[in-house]
Computed example of a mutant assay.
Amino acid sequence: MCLGNPSPIAEAVFRKLVTDENVSDKWRIDSAATSTCEVGNPPDYRGQNRRKEHGVAVNHVAQQVPEEDLVTFDCMLCMDESSRRDWTRKGHPVNHSRATAELLGSYDPRKQLIVEDPITGMSPT
């Protein structure tokens, strides 16, 4: 989950990783934004070009995080603190919300907690 740019790339890469490891049946993978600014748009062309360079397929149109994700997902991986705060605020009014919000970077072996925008190279927070 992000404001708009990195999460479609993360979704595509993660989908490729679980497919390559033959464990895709154990995961439900999706990507969404906390804002509506990119809803309906394809990923940025620069991100699409980067994925093509690395052989990562993508079929994505931007969407805002649907409310049902609050009760169907166990964990939401956020690109930065801003997205995590937005997710946490969104989750509070929904009954039976079970999803936790974690930073994707907390799983990075290099401990880079915040995922930089792969297009601009800047941290979104």
Score class of each variant (00 low, 15 high):
Leu17Gln: 03
Val18Ser: 08
Val18Asn: 13
Val18Glu: 13
Thr19Pro: 00
Asp20Asn: 06
Glu21Trp: 07
Glu21Gln: 08
Glu21Val: 01
Asn22Ala: 14
Asn22Asp: 14
Asn22Thr: 08
Asn22His: 15
Val23Leu: 07
Val23Ala: 05
Ser24Pro: 02
Ser24Gln: 15
Asp25Gln: 12
Asp25Gly: 04
Asp25Asn: 10
Lys26Val: 00
Lys26Pro: 01
Trp27Glu: 04
Trp27Gln: 01
Arg28Ala: 11
Ile29Lys: 01
Ile29Trp: 06
Ile29Tyr: 06
Asp30Tyr: 04
Asp30Glu: 08
Asp30Asn: 10
Ala32Glu: 00
Ala32Leu: 01
Ala32Met: 02
Ala33Gly: 14
Thr34Gly: 13
Thr34Asp: 04
Thr34Leu: 04
Ser35Gln: 08
Thr36Met: 03
Thr36Ala: 04
Thr36Tyr: 02
Cys37His: 11
Cys37Gly: 15
Cys37Ser: 14
Cys37Val: 11
Glu38Gln: 02
Glu38Ile: 02
Val39Ala: 03
Asn41Gly: 05
Asn41Glu: 11
Pro42Ala: 12
Pro42Met: 06
Pro42Lys: 05
Pro42Glu: 07
Pro42Leu: 08
Pro43Ile: 02
Asp44Met: 05
Asp44His: 10
Asp44Tyr: 03
Asp44Glu: 10
Tyr45Glu: 14
Tyr45Lys: 14
Tyr45Leu: 12
Tyr45Pro: 10
Tyr45His: 08
Arg46His: 09
Arg46Glu: 14
Gly47Ser: 10
Gly47Tyr: 00
Gly47Ala: 11
Gln48Arg: 15
Gln48Ser: 06
Asn49Phe: 05
Asn49Val: 09
Arg50Trp: 06
Arg50Cys: 08
Arg50His: 09
Arg50Gln: 15
Arg50Leu: 13
Arg50Ile: 15
Arg50Gly: 02
Arg51His: 09
Arg51Ile: 05
Lys52Asn: 12
Lys52Gly: 09
Lys52Thr: 08
Glu53Cys: 08
His54Ser: 09
His54Met: 06
His54Trp: 03
His54Ile: 07
Gly55Leu: 05
Gly55Ile: 02
Val56Gly: 10
Ala57Met: 12
Ala57Ser: 14
Ala57Gly: 13
Ala57Leu: 15
Val58Ser: 15
Asn59Ala: 08
Asn59Asp: 11
Asn59Ser: 11
Asn59Trp: 02
His60Trp: 11
His60Arg: 02
His60Ala: 06
Val61Ser: 09
Ala62Asn: 04
Gln63Pro: 00
Gln64Val: 03
Val65Asn: 01
Val65Leu: 10
Val65His: 02
Val65Trp: 00
Pro66Trp: 03
Glu67Gln: 12
Glu67Ala: 11
Glu68Gly: 07
Glu68Tyr: 12
Glu68Asp: 15
Asp69Asn: 03
Leu70Cys: 15
Leu70Val: 11
Leu70Gly: 15
Leu70Glu: 11
Val71His: 01
Val71Phe: 02
Thr72Ile: 02
Thr72Val: 12
Thr72Trp: 00
Phe73Lys: 10
Phe73His: 12
Phe73Ile: 05
Phe73Trp: 00
Phe73Asn: 06
Asp74Arg: 11
Asp74Ala: 13
Asp74Tyr: 01
Cys75Arg: 06
Cys75Leu: 14
Cys75Asp: 10
Met76Glu: 03
Met76Cys: 09
Met76Ser: 09
